[in-house]
Design a protein around this nucleic acid. Structure first.
Length: 266
DNA sequence: CGCAGCGCCTGAAGGC
DNA sequence: TGCCTTCAGGCGCTGC
């Protein structure tokens, strides 16, 4: 599932490839989740930025094209003559290439909005700080987590305490910081450890080009390598790398969750 | 207003 | 072998 490291890997690859390109034409799946992709027709692409898991393409008409990859979304340059029933949007570029958005399960989303107007994307509008910005601090994380009584993992997945953490990196960060995923309250030291852990696991994910367990591919079609660096996610019943206790698998907020019942205390 | 619960999607994998 | 069930889960929306 594309989380911040996967989206950032894609952004770094496609930004230089797409900057300055004019969108000559566009097509999209009829679903409201993708239909507005055609509104980018006639615009020139500027800077490509990322906010959490959202890709933001600046357009020269005071709008921006926003792409969220959901579970199985991917961006790529089309191969000539190849048809694919899972392509949900396509943009014809002025250099002859076709940018495609492919999404088997259609959990992703595309929007064209006036620059900075995110009312139609409430999760984007309400997101917490970028994890590598100065605004993300141990104190800020502790305060943010304290405003809700929801489980700490649920809060991380809400994107509100910090942007960009999904199920894989949430399990990794909670394991690294020794915080129990179902905790409804975290201490200041726990928040400080979680702050460090979020930055660590996301930075490592970027360094490794993202995590490819099933569907994730980068803009060049390649796989990430971070799946070989995971300490917790997907390792249920395998020994904890700190204490050797078999990791436990449970469900929190309808998401598969792996954690160490010995190291990670409430 | 906050939040729990639900629905969207479809291929892969496992059971019988 | 083939059919059926279960599973993966981010996020927008609804209703309490």
């Amino acid at each position: 599932m594309p989380e911040l490291p996967e989206v950032e890997t894609i952004r770094r690859q496609l930004a230089p490839r797409l900057a300055g390109r004019l969108i000559l034409d566009a097509r999209a799946h009829e679903s409201a989740k993708f239909a507005s992709a055609v509104a980018a027709r006639g615009a020139r692409i500027g800077e490509v930025q990322r906010r959490g898991k959202y890709l933001l393409f600046a357009l020269d008409n005071d709008h921006e094209l926003i792409v969220h990859l959901g579970m199985t979304g991917m961006l790529r340059i089309a191969e000539p003559g190849v048809t694919d029933q899972y392509v949900r949007a396509a943009w014809d570029l002025d250099d002859g290439a076709v940018l495609e958005y492919r999404d088997v399960r259609r959990f992703g989303r595309i929007a064209v909005v006036p620059r900075g107007s995110y009312a139609s994307l409430p999760t984007l509008a309400a997101q917490g700080p970028e994890p590598f910005d100065d605004a993300f601090t141990p104190q800020q994380l502790w305060t943010a987590l304290g405003t809700s009584t929801a489980r700490v993992k649920t809060q991380l997945l809400s994107q509100r305490p910090v942007a960009g953490v999904g199920n894989i990196y949430a399990d990794e960060a909670l394991w690294r910081s020794r915080v129990h995923p179902a905790s409804r309250h975290v201490t200041k030291p726990q928040a400080a450890r979680l702050h460090e852990a979020v930055r660590h696991v996301l930075a490592q994910g970027i360094d490794n080009g993202g995590t490819t367990l099933r569907d994730y591919r980068n803009f060049e079609g390649g796989r990430g390598e971070n799946q070989f660096a995971l300490a917790c996610y997907g390792r249920g019943d395998e020994p904890c790398l700190r204490c050797a206790t078999p990791l436990r698998r449970t469900v929190i907020d309808a998401r598969g969750t792996t954690f160490c019942g010995t190291c990670q205390r409430r």
